[in-house]
Structures are given as structure tokens and as C-alpha cells.
């Protein structure tokens, strides 16, 4: 029995009478302890797929099985790291993590909970910033808080939705190592959604491309046969790495080219700026 199983998943969104099928016929199995990456273009339905797995959305057709049981709603067993950090801006770093820990372990005493918070904040090396609010932190630090928050709940599976997408290359590299480190230590199952092929190859055991939506579906999987721990500089000379990388990029380029032919019609986006409610009434 697979650890996580997606069987013939379809997801359609209804908007103003017209239906858009975002995901169609998605089949995926992940074994316990595996690190799987899903690579795809932006807007291909990656976040929808993640939300189906973590329980924020329900599939229109098909079933998501977690340890053999259908997924109903969110669960503390599956920790989520969101694309845009989603920290609560009115709480400090410590309070953000504490809130999660308290929900995950309602029976522990306050001092035990605080110890867990301190441990995980230390793990992402943010102890000096534990009393700061998210707006005082850089993007990389905020994402580290989100990582600490997700991991502090001790989930059996970590689901990461483009967790490093908004970061610069250097911070990204560091955080990749930190995540791999934690994953290696506690051997949890991990699902990484990303748009960076190199990141996928560096971190995952298997890479599965997502063909762009609407009607997004999973492409053929690519196994990464590289020993861990992997070294970024050494990896570049490894013929195995080069072949896999070329194969994946070629595959993605091909779908990209197909998509361009399909989408010859141009769309004009409206010029919108977000409303600022607060300053309007001052």
C-alpha cells in the first residue's frame, strides 16, 4: 500500500456558469520516506494539486488516499509550507510557531510547548529574531519561520508549495540545504512543488513534470539516481545528472512549445492596483 495515493483526480472550477477543468486524470503514488518533486510552469495548477493533497480543497472526481484512508479536510499529519509564507503579521516569530505547536500538542504544558518552539526556531537559526514580527524580517527569514512552523508540528509528511520561489539564488541554496538536512535527520515523506528543475534534481528522489493546465496532468516520472548527500558543484560534472537534467528540460520545452502553438490568441490583462483600505480613512 502506498503512503500517499492520488487516483484519477479531476478538479474543475466553476465561475459564472462556465467550468474550467484545472486538473485532469492525475495519478500519483508516493512511498513512505520518499522525496518527490513536481515541476511545472507557473499557472499549471500546482497549487491546486497541493491543496487537494493537504485537504484545503476536495477533488471533483477521484480520490486522494493518505495511508490508505481518503483525505477529508486538513490534518496535523501533513504539514504545509505555503508559497507566500502566510505568517500572521500581528504575531512575533515565536508566537507564530507557538500557535501551531499548541494546536498540534494540546496536552503539553506551556513550558514544554515553549521548549519545542525554541528548538525549532533555533533549527532555522532565528533565535535572535524570535521576538520580531514578520515585517521586520527579510523574505528568507520569513520563509524559515514558515518552515519552522510547519516542522514544529512534527508532521509525518511535509508538503511544500514553491517554498523558495520568491527568494534570491543564494538564500535559496542555503534553505534547500537546511530543508534536506532536516528531512535526512527525521526521514519524513516530502512533496516539493517547484518551477526550478535544478532544485528538483538536487533535492528529490523522483521528479514528475506537470503538463500545464487547463487539463493539467502529470507527465512521465524521472528517477534521480544520485547518492546523498549531494554536492552542488560535483553534481554539475556527473554524467547521470546531466542526462536527467537534459531529459527533463527537453520534455518541459516540448510541452512549452506545444502550449505556445495552442495559445496563439492573446489576452490583455486589466490594469489593477490593490485597494488600500487603511490609509483611505486616516
Amino acid at each position: 500500500m502506498a503512503y500517499l495515493e492520488l487516483n484519477n483526480i479531476y478538479k474543475t472550477y466553476e465561475q459564472g456558469g462556465s467550468e474550467t477543468e484545472v486538473l485532469s486524470n492525475i495519478n500519483l503514488t508516493i512511498e513512505e520516506g520518499e522525496f518527490v518533486a513536481i515541476v511545472g510552469f507557473t499557472g499549471s495548477g500546482k497549487t491546486t494539486l497541493v491543496n487537494l493533497i493537504n485537504g484545503l480543497l476536495e477533488p471533483t472526481k477521484g480520490e486522494v488516499l493518505f495511508k490508505g484512508k481518503p483525505v477529508q479536510g486538513t490534518s496535523h499529519e501533513r504539514g504545509v509550507i505555503f508559497q507566500n509564507y502566510s505568517l500572521l503579521p500581528w504575531l512575533t516569530v515565536g508566537q507564530n510557531v507557538y500557535m501551531a505547536v499548541k494546536e498540534a500538542f494540546p496536552k503539553k504544558s506551556k513550558s514544554e510547548l515553549n521548549a519545542i518552539v525554541a528548538d525549532y526556531v533555533e533549527m532555522v537559526s532565528l533565535t535572535p529574531a524570535i521576538n520580531k514580527r514578520p515585517k521586520e524580517l527579510s523574505g528568507g527569514m520569513r520563509q524559515r519561520v514558515a518552515v519552522a512552523r510547519a516542522l514544529a508540528m512534527k508532521p509525518e509528511m511535509i508538503i511544500m508549495d514553491e517554498p523558495l520561489g520568491a527568494l534570491d539564488a543564494l538564500t535559496r541554496g542555503n534553505l534547500q540545504d537546511e530543508i534536506l538536512n532536516i528531512w535526512g535527520k527525521e526521514k519524513r515523506t516530502a512533496l516539493l512543488i517547484t518551477n526550478d528543475v535544478d532544485e528538483g534534481i538536487y533535492m528529490a528522489d523522483r521528479i514528475i513534470p506537470l503538463r500545464p493546465g487547463p487539463n493539467a496532468t502529470l507527465g512521465p516520472e524521472f528517477k534521480i539516481d544520485l547518492d546523498r548527500p549531494r554536492d552542488k558543484t560535483e553534481m554539475n560534472d556527473n554524467p547521470n545528472f546531466k542526462n536527467t537534467r537534459n531529459a527533463i528540460i527537453e520534455y518541459l520545452m516540448d510541452i512549452g512549445a506545444e502550449r505556445k502553438v495552442e495559445a496563439s490568441e492573446g489576452f490583455v490583462l486589466p490594469e489593477l492596483t490593490p485597494k488600500d483600505f487603511v490609509n483611505r480613512f486616516k
Binding site: L56, T74, S75, H76, V80, F82, S86, L88, M99, M153
Partner: peptide, 11 residues
């Protein structure tokens, strides 16, 4: 996003 956080943390 905040509502999603609340759901994922099962508040």
C-alpha cells in the same frame, strides 16, 4: 492566506 493557515493548523 490567513484562513488557509487557520485551516491547516486546525484552529
Amino acid at each position: 492566506d490567513y484562513i488557509n493557515v487557520a485551516k491547516v493548523l486546525k484552529l
